[in-house]
Amino acid sequence: MCLAVPGKVLEIKGERAVVDFGGVRREAIISMLDDVKVGDYVLIHVGFAIQKLDIEEAKETLKLWVSILKETT
């Protein structure tokens, strides 16, 4: 019900930002997030940024699970 993809903020123009999805750039509205900076990863759904993605957290979760799985399988 909600396809949303991560994009990297390249440029900020007031309520809007140019976001790069990996060689595809499109403007998105970022006014639903606080202090978005260039270089942030944001989650874009139908042209609107609904979250600032926590990259460190993403890496931590993966590392945690890889270690758990190593012990048990």
């Binding site: 759904h45 609107f48 609904i50």
Partner: peptide
């Protein structure tokens, strides 16, 4: 058409 994910964009 959609759920709470899409509602804010439409509200905007």
């Amino acid at each position: 058409v959609g759920f709470e994910t899409t509602a804010p964009a439409v509200a905007y």
